[in-house]
Amino acid sequence: MILQIIAVTAGLGLVIAVLGLTVLWLLRGRSIGVMLAVVAVVTVAATLAGVVAITMEMIIDGHPKDVVLTVVAIAGLVGIGVALVVARQVVAASRKLVTAVEEVPATLDFTPPQGPLPAELRTIAHALDQAYARLRAARQREQALEGARRELVAWVSHDLRTPLAGMRAMVEALEDGVVDDTATVSRYHNQIRLEVDRLAHMVDDLFELSRIHAGALRLSPRRVGLGDLVADALAGVEALAMAKGVRLTGDTPPVLPVYADAAELGRALRNLVVNAIRHTPQDGAVVVRATADDATVRLSVADACGGIPEDDLPRVFDVAFRGEAARTPGPDRGAGLGLAIARGIVEAHEGAIAVVNEGPGCRFEISLPRAASPA
C-alpha cells in the first residue's frame, strides 16, 4: 500500500513538474511575478493531485473524503493567493528599482529606492550604486584628461609657432640675401639648428606622453643600482647645469638596488633634474639623493626655485602645467611635459611621485618598491 501511494504521488508530481517547467520555459521572458505564480501553482497542483488521487482510490470514502478534499482545495487556494501576493511585492520592488535607474540624472547620482527591498534586489541596488560611483569617477577622469588635452594643444601650438616663426624669418633672410656676412649667417644656422633640436625634443616628449596615456608604455624591468642611475642622469645634464651656473650634487649609497626599466626610470629622473636646473637661479644648487628602507627606495631632487604656491602643488604633474607665478620661464623652458612624463613612468613602475616645498625651493621625490626577484 505504501509503495502504491508513493508511486502514484511521484508519477503525478513528475507529470505536473514537467508541465510546469515547460510553461516556465515558454514564459522565460515574462515578469518574475508570473513565473512565481506558475511555481506556486505547480507546487499546489502537485500536492493536490497526490492527495486527491489517494483519497479517491484508496484510503478515504464518504463524508471524510469530502472534508479532506475541501481542506486541500482551500489550502491550495491560500497557497496560490500567498504566492500571488509575494509575486506582486517582488514585481513592485523591481519596478521601484527600475524607476530609480531611469531617473538617474546626467550627473550619474544614483538614489536607491526608498523602503524595504528583498535581499537580492537590495544587493542589486548596492551594486548599481557602486557602479554609478565608478562611472562618475571615470567621467571625472575623462573630463580632466580632455581638459589636459586641450591645454596641451594650446601650449604646444604656442611653443611650435614661436620657433617656427623665428626659423622662417631667418630662412627668408638667408634666401633673400638680407644677411650675407659670415658671422650672422653662422649665427642664424646655429640658431636654426638649436630650434630644430628643441622641436625634435618636444615631438619626442609628445610621443612618450601619448604612449603613457594610451597604456602602451612597455617596460623591460631588471635589477639596477640607483647609484649608476643617478650618475648617468647627472652626467646627461651636466652641460645644462654648467651653462646655467647651477651646482649639481649626487648623494647615493653605492649599492642600492631597484627592479625597474633603467632607460625609462632614468628618463623620469633626468626630467626632474632638468626641471630643477631650469628653475634654479645662478649659483644655486640641485641635490639628488637616494634613500631606502626595508620595502621602499626613494629618489629625491631638491632645488632652489623659491618654492611653488600651495594652490599649484596639486597641479605640478598635470600635462602642460607651468607654475609661472612661482617660476618665471626662460628661453630654455620646455613644453611643460617633463613632469607629466615622469609621473607616468613612475606610476607604470607601481611607484609614486610627489613634491613639497622645502628649504630654498622644493623637493620632488620618487618612491619605488625595493628590488626583489622577478615574478
Rank of each mutant, 00 (worst) to 15 (best):
M1Y: 00
M1P: 00
Q4R: 06
I6K: 00
I6T: 04
T9I: 09
G13A: 06
L14I: 05
V18L: 15
G20Y: 04
T22I: 05
L24F: 12
W25H: 07
L26P: 09
G29L: 14
G29E: 15
V34P: 01
M35D: 03
A37P: 00
T43N: 11
A45E: 02
V51M: 01
A53H: 04
A53Q: 09
T55E: 15
E57L: 13
E57D: 11
E57K: 07
K65W: 02
D66C: 03
V67D: 03
V68R: 05
V68K: 02
L69F: 00
T70Y: 15
T70P: 01
V71I: 10
L77N: 03
L77T: 09
L77H: 01
G81F: 11
G81I: 11
V86H: 05
V90R: 04
V90E: 02
A92F: 13
S94Y: 09
P105Q: 01
T107H: 05
P112E: 09
P113M: 07
G115H: 07
L117D: 03
E120M: 05
L121G: 12
R122S: 15
A125K: 10
H126G: 07
Q130Y: 00
R139N: 10
R141G: 09
R141I: 04
Q143T: 14
Q143F: 13
G147E: 02
G147H: 11
G147F: 02
L152E: 13
V153L: 09
S157A: 07
L160Q: 07
R161G: 00
T162C: 07
L164R: 09
A165P: 03
V171K: 04
G177I: 02
T182S: 14
A183F: 12
A183W: 14
V185H: 03
S186Y: 11
R187A: 13
N190H: 10
Q191N: 05
L199K: 14
V203A: 15
D204Y: 11
F207C: 06
F207W: 05
E208D: 13
L209Y: 14
H213Y: 10
G215Y: 13
G215L: 12
P221E: 08
P221N: 11
R222L: 02
G225K: 04
L226Q: 04
D232Q: 12
A233E: 04
A233W: 02
V237L: 06
E238P: 01
V246R: 09
L248C: 02
G250R: 01
L256H: 06
A260F: 10
A260W: 08
A263P: 05
L265D: 08
R270T: 14
R270A: 04
L272F: 11
V273N: 08
A276I: 08
I277L: 12
R278D: 15
R278Q: 14
D283A: 12
G284V: 06
G284Q: 02
R289M: 07
D294V: 13
D294A: 11
V297F: 08
P309N: 08
E310C: 11
F317R: 10
V319Q: 11
T328D: 12
P331A: 15
G338L: 10
G344F: 15
G344V: 15
I345E: 11
I345V: 15
A348Q: 14
E350F: 06
E350V: 03
C362N: 02
F364W: 14
E365K: 00
E365V: 12
I366N: 06
I366G: 08
P369S: 05
A372P: 05
S373G: 14
